[in-house]
Amino acid sequence: MISKTTTLVAGVAIAMTGLAAIAQEPDQDGTSEFRTFDPVAGELLNFAGSGDLAQTGGEAVYGAVCAGCHMPDGAGAQGAGVYPSLVENDLLAAPSYPIYLILEGQGAMPPLGGIMDDQQVADVVNYIRSSFGNDFNGEWGEATAEDVGETRQ
């Protein structure tokens, strides 16, 4: 069973009807190449990397990639299979396990080491280990870029 039945149909419709109107607004800063909407600062990092992620910091990296399956609130999702919840998840206690999964992938999850550098992986690992009801960085220590680099080898 699909556990949630939220629908964003109304939101889609509103966003769509707004497009033509926005496009007719004069270019606000005169330099933006954006034609159909004015992205806010954080949005400009979307797709800014060529083949990798431009976002930095755990929260931004999580929001740009991980949240797609594990959801913005870390609760995961269920269909024919599940995307595991990260909420109060003891498997995240030691940094090595999430580092390994991010680099190697497993099941539905593809390896992401190719689009993130060591620091991005470390940051997002520490973010999920200190969010969603988790608080592991103090007791277990934080992941470092060096840890990620060693796991890659």
């Binding site: 159909t36 979307n46 990798d52 990639v65 992401l112």
Partner: peptide
Amino acid sequence: ANAYQFNAMQPDEAVRWAVE
């Protein structure tokens, strides 16, 4: 990488970028 970023967006947001 771009597919992963689109995946993290809601459909209306992703479509907005595709139109752009």
